[in-house]
Design a protein around this nucleic acid. Structure first.
Lengths: 362, 362
DNA sequence: TTGTATGCGTTATCAG
DNA sequence: CTGATAACGCATACAA
């Protein structure tokens, strides 16, 4: 080595053929030394490795290997929103966590993709990235077109919390039942005037009281299913939509619900724990005690910061398991086996934020 | 199509050669139709496209293209912790956001990698994934070995908030100065008894009072720099380490600092806003008013839920810009140009959580 | 256990 | 504007 190793001729990187030649073996033998796919004499092995180190060969070029193998070892994970937004959702991060674990166990890496209509023209997309499969987190509107690109390529697809159409395995929750269970809990406690704070109806993030037409037009399955479950028990509940699953949005919705002291609900069902935390804050702002004056229930079963001593009544969903299940489904699909949709069950958790309706004698 | 389209002969997917043949043009012409790298007669173009649609050809195989081009269009982003943990940190997600934007503009996708020593043997790593470059978020201990693998491959590397050694461009903050500025602010307000709540010292997440030996052994640059800045102004400050940047950890540290009413600090400098929020909560628990009885400052300048009406005194860091800058640096490196390290400057923000020391007459 | 021969699907180059 | 040709770097089936 001279004083400046980079100054020399820009000789191309060594290939496995170079290594083989220098070690006096055939390319296939050298290949096997690195892949371990077949036994190699110890002496041969050592010689090849030594020569490789000498030549600065650091292992097979993944690009060439993936062409040859027909697999890249990469699975796309696509979210609908901006990343910062997606990762603000504790459920999504937990799911991502299980998913990366599940995929890693399978030997695959995760290519993070955002379903962005106006990305750079040459940026990788579901249609162009070197992926073996795709997992969609959520699937509404535009995403469904994007999806077609993947299916055209003949790649396996799994969708978490979304409807991607026929033949695409779905990983879901029993949102309807879990929501109904919460509603029944409140009904048994004597509540009759119910407020519902929903997740967003579609990509639009509109806030405020929902008209029947708007409700009929909900495109987000999670929102719709949880609402259906609630309305099956409380058909006359007042429905307010939030602009997303954030504490602040819950505060806004809560203020709306508690604005008129004459006509306020005795219980609020929020479609996420974060929203519920916001509703609780709004209640306290309005001088209402939880659960004495108003009961509040959430959904998700995550740990919420800023909830004080309250333990939220909620439906605990197995978020990490959902991700892992998606990973498993991808593995099966990749192995050519069929993969069925899976619906996970939430566990109802009674906390300290719900109690008997004022004046109710159980 | 028969009733079961998948039942037919498993004829392999059409290649660009098939399309070219069927369209009566050469493979190179067909290639150009898809890449747009050269002008093509409109009629030829249409014919090729029509034939492609007919054959179900959905565009060049990315694996083959990347082998030929020598580029995969994928950049690895490596975090040290478990994903769920990493994305719990608002600064990291904001940085990721800027980074994905910056890389997307460059036409690259993001392969999310965790520096996991015991991952599946065939899972992609920095050493084996088909990537064009790598961005490390944080770089301590074990990660440095991993890094060697990338450098051996001759791939460009950029590190955000970490020291990856000679020749690796770093994207950083002026942590020392920003921390010193906060300290000077408190000093000017008459504070002399200072408590410091630090981020974790290393991967170990040990909580509690720090001995000089432990302080000397800090391996996380962020922690060390911010602490150095603080100690340069308050050499005798009491240092307590937290187990991570969480509100709950801040609460624990705060309880420790406020445990003895006789010897409690009049001001606490936390190394993150989340920790500061926790300290404030601990102060209120202890019956202390902020800032009348105790001042609290943070670091980061993020929006913290659960802070009530307080506006945190803090150093606002340009987190998204950091990510974008890393993306730019990768672009330069990929273009063969040199990329220098960049140090971003924090903006001091005086909020409502710091005030004059009790009894201090300015 | 090792070597030989092929082709994976593209795209850059250069000549027409 | 189009076509012929030659790699890109590797892994596998098969023969020895």
């Amino acid at each position: 080595m001279s004083s400046d190793p980079d100054a020399g001729a820009p000789r191309r990187r060594a290939t496995i053929a170079d290594v083989a030649r220098a070690a006096g073996v055939s390319p296939s033998t050298a290949s096997v030394v690195f892949s371990g796919k077949a036994p190699v004499a110890e002496r041969t092995r050592e010689r090849v490795l030594a020569v490789a180190a000498d030549l600065g060969y650091t292992g097979p070029d993944p690009r060439a290997a993936s062409l040859r193998r027909g697999r890249s070892g990469i699975v796309a994970v696509t979210v609908e929103e901006h990343l910062r937004t997606a990762f603000l959702d504790p459920i999504k991060t937990a799911t991502m966590d299980g998913l990366t674990d599940g995929l890693a166990a399978l030997g695959a890496g995760v290519l993070l993709l955002r379903d962005d209509p106006d990305a750079a023209p040459d940026a990788p997309t579901l249609a162009t990235a070197p992926i073996d499969a795709a997992v969609l987190i959520g699937c509404s509107g535009r995403m469904r077109e994007t999806l077609q690109a993947v299916r055209n390529r003949g790649l396996p697809v799994v969708v978490i919390e979304g409807d991607a159409g026929e033949g695409v395995p779905r990983i879901e929750l029993d949102n309807v039942e879990a929501a109904a269970q919460i509603a029944h809990h409140l009904r048994a406690l004597g509540h009759r005037d119910i407020g519902v704070v929903t997740l967003s109806f579609d990509g639009e993030r509109v806030r405020g009281d929902a008209t029947p037409e708007r409700i009929a037009g909900i495109t987000t399955p999670v929102t719709k299913d949880r609402l259906d479950g609630t309305l099956s028990v409380f058909p006359d509940a007042r429905v307010v939509s939030a602009g997303g699953s954030f504490i602040d949005e819950g505060v806004l919705a809560g203020r709306l619900l508690f604005a008129d002291p004459e006509h306020r609900p005795t219980a609020v069902i929020a479609q996420s724990d974060l929203l519920a935390a916001g509703v609780i804050r709004a209640a306290e702002e309005a001088g209402l005690r939880v659960p004495e004056d108003v009961s509040v229930a959430g959904f998700d079963g995550i740990a919420v910061d800023g909830l004080g001593d309250h333990i939220l009544t909620t439906a605990v969903q197995p978020a990490v398991e959902k991700g892992r299940a998606a990973g498993d489904a991808v593995a099966r699909l990749l192995a050519g086996e069929p993969a069925a949709s899976i619906s996970f069950t939430c566990a109802f958790r009674e906390g300290t934020t719900t109690g008997p309706a004022p004046g109710f004698v159980g």
